[in-house]
């Protein structure tokens, strides 16, 4: 008897999102589980954005800071380097310097940085706050206005501040990241609340909260997988926005990416270890459902690009 390939077909489909106004990037749009092209359409590969910051990355470990040694003192130079030298598909500008416990930069400062970076690049821009819910609701509003009509991604809107941030993203024609803390039911709830404000669900990106290998990665993996299954098998429109994995931020603070080889000789070379840690974390989350990745180390990005090409 001839072998018949088992096929799953799903009622639901992930929304396809296009970001950027000059060069654009497209992700989502599939009606199958990640990379399972045999089951359905998988029209777009995941998109990787290089993370940069509005202030020098003094909190990044040396091994990843070294990759941006001569450019990270200025966000514009840094952004151009990622676009022109590293062929970035997208840039993720994290306005971490606006955090009250950091440089406490003002919303006006942040807006100027956004404008300057946008003027220097033609790839899509993702604009992230400092993850301080009060400050973000001021900073991201100013940033969204500064980037008006540039079809950026604004994030992250959380339960405590989604109203102002979603309104600003809506008024200035951006996409929006909705983040909840590792709970699929709260993730669905936040997407409902945001769409109830009149925000188009096809402009949303879900961030179920990332975690690094060894630090709860399996929780993120499982939540992403369940979100995708709800989108496909239950045709749940609230769970059909693409998923973000904000990888670099979580990976480059765990001890495995930082501990010196002299202290833990059996762990091997610290630089290679960090790159591997980011690659494995990003790769795992991509196969669980993430369509947009934010990463830091150029070598890890290269490895994931190769992984994507091989899976396709």
């Amino acid at each position: 008897m001839a072998f018949v390939e088992p096929k799953e077909s799903f009622a639901g489909k992930v929304y396809q999102i296009t970001i950027g106004s000059d060069k654009t990037a497209v992700f989502g749009g599939e009606n199958a589980l990640p990379f399972l092209t045999v089951d359905g359409n998988y029209p777009n590969k995941p998109v990787i954005a290089f993370e940069i910051q509005d202030v020098p990355p003094t909190d990044w470990p040396d091994t990843v800071r070294k990759a941006y040694e001569n450019v990270s003192g200025d966000p514009v130079t840094w952004a151009k380097y990622c676009q022109n030298e590293l062929n970035a598909q997208a840039i993720a500008l994290r306005l971490v310097g606006t955090h009250p416990d950091r440089e406490n930069r003002t919303a006006e400062d942040a807006a100027k940085t956004v404008k300057d970076v946008l003027a220097a690049i033609n790839v899509p821009l993702i604009i992230l706050g400092s993850n301080n819910v009060e400050k973000d609701s001021v900073v991201l509003v100013a940033a969204a206005e500064a980037a008006k009509d540039k079809n950026c991604v604004i994030g992250k809107a959380q339960e405590a501040n989604y109203k102002t941030i979603a309104a600003a993203a809506m008024a200035n024609n951006h996409k929006l990241i909705a983040m909840s803390e590792l709970d699929i039911n709260l993730s669905k709830q936040l997407n409902i609340l945001i769409t109830q404000m009149g925000f188009d669900k096809e402009r949303l990106i879900t961030d179920p909260m990332c975690s690094a290998l060894g630090y709860g990665l399996e929780y993120t993996y499982s939540v992403m997988e369940r979100i995708r299954l709800a989108a496909l098998t239950q045709n749940d429109a609230t769970m059909q926005p693409p998923i973000l994995a904000d990888v670099g931020m979580y990976v480059w603070k765990v001890k495995e990416t930082q501990a010196a080889e002299a202290d833990v000789p059996n762990w091997g070379n610290v630089e290679q270890r960090g790159i591997t840690w980011e690659t494995v974390t990003a790769g795992s989350l991509m196969v669980s459902g993430a369509e947009l990745l934010i990463m830091r180390h150029p070598e890890a990005v290269k490895a994931i690009q190769k992984f994507i090409d091989e899976l396709n």
Binding site: N185, L186, I192, D236, T238, M239
Partner: peptide, 11 residues
């Protein structure tokens, strides 16, 4: 059959 969220009745 549907994923729970606090606002499920409003959907």
């Amino acid at each position: 059959k549907t994923l729970y969220a606090h606002s499920y009745l409003e959907m």
